[in-house]
Design a protein around this nucleic acid. Structure first.
Length: 470
RNA sequence: GGACGGGUGGCCUAGUCUGGAUAUGGCAGCAGCCUCCUAAGCUGCAGGUCGGGGGUUCGAAUCCCCUCCCGUUCGCCA
């Protein structure tokens, strides 16, 4: 493959500077080339001062005088100690356009590199609809996955479903014990929205009624003892919830390749294997009650408690134990694993990595963290019902886009207008999330989230589609 | 208290890893631009010295040290 115009420009600049330095008697001086908004390539001459015993400004002037524009170099000029090179734009534009036409949608993609990357994202607890507090997760994850594909990686996206533990058991109790009349009818006809009402009611009753509390505790004990009936009904509830979440995700063009269920790692015994393996480690120990832990103080974990518990005193496994089994499984299928996680998972993620290291895993997952989106009035909570659902945000975005389209393109059919409104509205939502650094705290405001002006999804869409339309 | 993030014009934000020239955009504000093509747009004006203080360097938003504010976290929860 021959060099493109840009690469040619770069090597011509490098050669020209090298030659000019030779002409002033210093052919071996090191220099850097950088992009700037004043030049296509700039070479700062400050580093030469010491050696040449001259001020950078004069050096740049001397060097510029010795370089004549040729080939792809359209001009050379000295400015305040910099040597500024401009590229000849005509061949650059011509070549770029030719390439865009030739490669079409694939333009900008890198060749396949054969590296398998697993991107785990979303993985929200199946206890309620996705709310905007966590909406960063699927959007960042999906965008990352798409970018990695463009970079030539073989990408698989994956959702880890937490169908184990207290929260889903509470939900399951609610679904089978709370009557339909006891919950407020949800207006949205989706399983996640319907089921969350039972979750809230179950939580409320559990707090008020000790019998309910005991019943749920009993279910949890049976679950952990491996009671197939309970495990099965919890799984069923979680599956129903996931169906609703999948609909939401598909609304924002997110489709995950694989759903992995936490309970599977209990059933297939791999969580137990992790336990046995960790017990043999020199870092492991047991409390008086019989719970097992590993001490991670040698692994950069600091604080008053450096112990990471991996079994309860009754020998049952914990979330993180299962997560270890899950990551071991992932690495059988991928060369790299990237986990998109809320910032509350930072310590857990670190512990996971250390434990994997102790177990002798050659591969360690990479985490990408994001901070939760909050409301002006504070944090969102599914249990308390203080939330803005992603579904509502999507609807609102699409409806606002629809208003705009109606106002300017009344010639289109209703169906066409709707189709455009969906693309524009959803693009606005995704772009609004992905445009800011993931770890930056973000407060959700309707007018900002749905602003279609300036630095927004719709504007970038137009920039992309404008030229194509021509 | 420890660990880990974030702090950039009135508001939002890029740049920080890999130190360079007048610190990137947007929103809001002001002044303009459609007898034709998407004005969800464009042009111009005004506004910041990058939380604060030291240090390294010819040069610091960027590296080092100290400090303040905000967030997350430190469960035999998930």
């Amino acid at each position: 493959m021959s060099m493109d115009v840009r690469q040619r420009f770069e090597s011509e600049v490098e050669a020209a500077v090298r030659t000019a330095l030779g002409e002033i008697g210093h052919p071996d001086l090191k220099f850097i080339m950088e992009a700037s908004n004043l030049a296509d390539i700039a070479v700062p001459c400050f580093g030469f001062s010491r050696e040449l015993r001259m001020d950078p400004k004069s050096i740049a002037e001397d060097l510029a005088a010795k370089i004549a524009p040729s080939g792809t170099i359209a001009s050379v000029s000295p400015l305040k100690g910099y040597l500024n090179f401009m590229i000849d734009e005509t061949p650059l534009i011509k070549e770029t356009l030719e390439k865009v036409i030739e490669e079409g949608e694939g333009y900008g993609s890198m060749p396949k590199n054969g590296i398998r990357v697993n991107v785990e994202h979303t993985s929200t607890n199946p206890t309620g609809p996705i709310h905007v507090g966590r909406a960063r997760n699927p959007i960042i994850g999906d965008t990352l996955a798409r970018a990695l594909k463009r970079c030539g990686y073989e990408v698989q996206t994956e959702y880890y479903v937490n169908d184990v533990g207290k929260q889903v058991v509470i939900l399951t109790w609610g679904v089978s014990n709370v009557s339909k009349d006891a919950v407020r009818e949800e207006d949205r006809d989706k399983t996640d929205h319907k089921l969350v009402a039972y979750y809230r009611e179950a939580n409320r009753r559990m707090e008020e009624d000790d019998d309910v509390k005991e019943h749920i505790a009993e279910m949890l004990r049976k679950f952990e003892a491996g009671d197939e009936g309970i495990i099965g009904s919890v799984r069923e509830t979680a599956e129903a919830m996931i169906e609703g979440l999948k609909e939401t995700l598909s609304e924002i063009n997110v489709k995950l390749d694989k759903y992995t269920w936490e309970s599977d790692f209990i059933r297939d015994g791999s969580a137990k294997d992790v336990v046995e393996k960790l017990k043999t480690s020199k870092y492991s120990g047991q409390t008086d009650d019989g719970a097992w832990y590993i001490d991670l103080k040698d692994f950069g974990i600091q604080g008053k408690n450096t112990k990471f518990t991996f079994t309860r005193s009754d020998g049952t496994t914990l979330y993180t134990t299962r997560d270890l089994a899950y990551h071991i499984d992932k690495f059988k299928r991928a060369d790299r694993a990237i986990d998109v996680l809320g910032e509350d998972q930072k310590l857990g993620s670190k512990q996971l990595c250390s434990a994997l290291e102790i177990m002798g895993s050659k591969k360690i997952p990479e985490a990408m963290f994001y901070s939760f989106v909050s409301l002006p009035e504070g944090k969102m909570s599914t249990r308390k019902g203080v939330v803005v659902y992603l579904d509502d945000l999507i609807d609102e975005a699409v409806s606002r886009a629809m208003d705009e389209i109606k106002a300017r393109r009344s010639d289109l059919s209703e169906a066409d207008m709707m189709s455009i409104a969906r693309k524009v509205g959803i693009g606005a939502v995704r772009y609004n999330i992905v445009r800011v650094h993931p770890e930056k705290q973000l407060v959700f405001r309707w007018d900002e989230a749905l602003n279609f002006d300036g630095n927004s999804g719709p504007t970038s869409n137009m920039c992309m589609q404008g030229p194509a339309a021509c």
